[in-house]
């Protein structure tokens, strides 16, 4: 048989090909390390800069013009107020939408339009949501710069995250469970409420917590709707104005004095600890309550 492939040449080239493979493997690994390295540096910087300002006073003081007196009381409590609005609103709307899409919606053009719309909404820059909130909630509905206006804006922003997570959770409940419920004469809503939702709750909660942590860290939409950054009082109702952690941090960061940058680092530290705590809870729920069917 006539040979077209010269095995000797192939053998000669082999070692350089293997070396190239090893070199690139190293390169790929180093690139992967880059992300981890950045994370390490970031945490190290923030901890070393900010830890000195963290004490009881930092939590008990309002914002101040003097760095040593500055505290995050208003921002910290404000963030909690914001969550009080965002958590129920976004969960009810998000889970409701997910149930509709997974359990009730017929496969038609309108349904696929809703789905397309949700995935596009997820890609809209957060600052644009701020413009929406400014026009609709702050101006048209005259909610002013209140906790409610900010909370509703934020709820719409994180809605796609909750919808998608809840849809996945509901979809992963096996068909057999639904059929078992229907076979006993249960209605659709009974089945959804008593069988599907309980089975899907870990997934929904995980998605919900991740959405809330996104809401905690978002700054841009709140800037646009005009939430103040320098507040020396606490809101009493959801109609009062307030500030939140990232706004306070932004304010400190943009001040020229370097001391305020350390205060900003302290604020970031508090926010990151809060976020890591929430994420750990989400991971815990995901690992311990997620049933495997």
């Amino acid at each position: 048989m006539q040979k077209l492939v010269d095995k000797e040449i192939i053998a000669k080239q082999m070692s350089s090909r293997i070396i190239r493979n090893q070199m690139f493997k190293g390169l790929f690994f180093l690139s992967t390390l880059f992300g981890l390295l950045v994370l390490g540096v970031l945490f190290y910087r923030i901890i070393t800069q900010g830890i000195g300002y963290i004490d009881l006073d930092f939590f008990q003081n309002f914002a101040s013009r003097r760095p040593e007196n500055a505290g995050i009381k208003a921002a910290f409590i404000g963030t909690i107020w914001l969550m009080v609005v965002v958590a129920p609103v976004s969960l009810i709307l998000g889970v409701g939408t997910a149930i509709y899409l997974e359990e009730y919606a017929k496969k038609n053009k309108f349904t696929s339009f809703i789905k397309l719309n949700i995935s596009n909404l997820a890609g809209v820059p957060s600052i644009v949501f701020g413009l929406l909130g400014l026009t609709i909630f702050v101006r048209a509905l005259a909610l002013e710069r209140s906790v409610l206006a900010a909370g509703l804006t934020m709820s719409l922003l994180v809605l796609p995250v909750i919808i998608v997570a809840s849809q996945e959770a509901i979809r992963s409940v096996p068909k057999e469970l639904r059929e078992a419920s229907f076979a006993m004469g249960a209605t659709k809503w009974q089945t959804v409420l008593k069988v599907v939702l309980p089975a899907a709750i870990p997934g929904i909660l995980t998605g919900g917590i991740l959405a809330l942590s996104r809401a905690i860290g978002e700054t841009a939409p709140l800037i646009v709707i005009g939430i103040p950054m320098f507040v020396a009082f606490l809101p009493k109702t959801i109609m009062d104005t307030f500030t939140v952690l990232p706004m306070q941090i932004y304010n400190w960061t943009s001040r020229p004095q370097t001391e305020f940058q350390d205060v900003a680092a302290a604020g970031i530290l508090v926010m990151l600890v809060l976020l890591i705590l929430m994420n750990s809870i989400a991971v815990f729920i995901r690992n311990h309550f997620q049933k495997r069917y």
Partner: peptide
Amino acid sequence: KPILEVLAGIPTIVYGFFALTF
């Protein structure tokens, strides 16, 4: 993978601070 998830979950204001001060 979880470390990358953490990186993706850091609020952008923190990245802004990192850009300016580091």
